[in-house]
Design a protein around this nucleic acid. Structure first.
Lengths: 285, 285
DNA sequence: TAGGTTGAGTAACTTTTGTTACAGAGTCCC
DNA sequence: GGGACTCTGTAACAAAAGTTACTCAACCTA
């Protein structure tokens, strides 16, 4: 049995990508649903796929015929056949990396991110990482988190997660001077300040960190590898790359390191953290 | 929909192994054929599987009922369901490998991020990406951005960047019902709603998106690849992987795609965007 | 060796699935 | 603002798939 994929494409996925523009609105929904749960969404029935996609069965049929198949069964056979060849390593299906750039922003940025992550993680000292995790796990300490104009997003993200795992975690506004002053006033040796500070560094952040340190707070600095001046007063420094091709710096690596920290905290807290997590989740619903 | 595997087995394959002895001669042939071409042989029809196994269709049916399934369709659903788990996320394989982090969290998460990015970018249709960029560059349109509990951070991040590149960009609070209602009231065909919605999906977000769409707004959805129900009303959908070893999902890929979009917008706006950027930067200092 | 029991295939049946025809809704263009 | 066109869903239809009843063959037991 030889199942042919229309248009001479190597895989149904490729065919899907290249046909996406020629599809009608509803048909595109089917394509998306299929790509989202590839290829299992296509291995059930027309009705099921229609339901997942949010369209009617005939639209699904029209979709597969538009792709060039003679009908849904033929389409399914092609899918199964493809699965036969490439099962085991789904990554095999992913496109081979072409030449450098020249192929649009998407592959270009992806490559940049991958390299950035690699560089960031190899430059991230494990000892610093562990220190940070340990600090954030200590129930006796209060955690305060803040950031700059862009990095506040990542700071908020860290707060949102840590709050689920432990108590005493609060974000501090970036522009809210009152908030910062009261935070300094309340700070002591039991306080941990996590501060995100990437170039270009602001005096605002430096002053805040210095004041916190002066009151005995432990400063944990998230910065790029040009190292913010705050490093001078920081106990722990976690550098991450921010290089980018676009006019803006990238905080993807920062975000990644942040998530690693959350993962580290979750693991270290173990069942206690999970228990709290489930407790909070229940309360939400 | 929850497909149950009879006998409390973890996978159909395991069930197969342990039942092999209790099968009749012909039934065992079917089991052999199935294991030889697992699981694709079971994804076709009863007749096909019978042919491959060298038995008659009823024997195949008897085989699956002996396994404990109520019928062939139920058996097939279990296979597909299982496939979803293994194939759907390549990352799921790692955490269970060497028990509790043989190599530490750092390299582990890094690897996970790298693979997640690869998967996300190869599953991201360029046409959808371009549509999104085009929408966000249109000066005649108003941009509204919102997100969920965690994804609001990424949403804020997008707003922070877009605001530097163009006018008419505003974030919409995630919990602020008043804000959402007024946003709906002000919306029209000239409005673009960028909504971040990752599992677990909230009704809040769905309702909001539907109302916006009903008023003619163009919905651009950022979601994971289980596809939020919002996809039904969305004009553009940009999926990103969120699989993670930690108890939380990861938004690193979402962040990366967001930055790609910012880069795309910056490039498309060209000198106009840069000019505005510099103007704003000057004003800040 | 004869009778009983178990297992497998043929064929008819029933259900489910894919397909097609048709009509209404929305959209674009003049 | 009207008309043509495209698109989508409802509903009826046809095809196919899965299931079951029945019969024959093989094997074990007495």
């Amino acid at each position: 049995m030889v199942s042919e994929i229309p248009g001479g494409h190597a895989s149904v996925r490729k065919l899907l990508m290249s046909t996406l523009d020629d599809l009608s609105n509803g048909e595109r929904k089917v394509a998306r649903a299929l790509m989202a749960q590839y290829p299992t969404a296509g291995l059930t029935t027309v009705v099921d796929l229609a339901e997942i996609s949010g369209v009617s069965p005939p639209t699904v049929v029209r979709f597969v015929t538009r792709l060039g198949f003679t009908g849904f069964p033929a389409f399914q056979r092609a899918l199964v056949h493809e699965l036969n060849g490439e099962l085991g390593s789904p990554l095999k299906q992913y496109p081979e990396k072409g030449g450098p750039s020249a192929l649009g922003i998407l592959p270009e940025t992806h490559q940049a991110f991958a390299e950035m992550l690699l560089a960031s993680y190899s430059e991230l000292p494990e000892s610093e990482f562990k220190k940070a995790v340990k600090l954030l796990c200590d129930p006796a300490r209060d955690i305060r988190v803040t950031g700059g104009r862009f990095s506040r997003s990542v700071a908020d993200y860290l707060v949102a997660h840590l709050r689920l795992l432990r108590s005493g975690v609060h974000g501090v506004g970036a522009d809210d001077e009152i908030d910062r002053r009261t935070t300094v006033a309340d700070a002591g040796p039991g306080t941990v300040l996590v501060i995100y500070d990437y170039r270009r560094y602001t005096d605002q952040n430096l002053v805040f960190a210095e004041r916190m340190a002066a009151r005995g707070a432990v400063v944990c600095l998230m910065t790029d590898n040009w190292l913010s001046p705050i490093a001078k007063v920081a106990k722990v420094v976690l550098p991450a790359r921010v290089d980018s091709a676009s006019p803006f710096d990238s905080l993807v690596a920062s975000m990644a390191v942040t998530e690693s920290i959350v993962a580290g905290v979750a693991e270290r807290l173990g069942t206690a953290g999970i228990a709290r997590l489930e407790l909070v989740e229940e309360a939400v619903e």
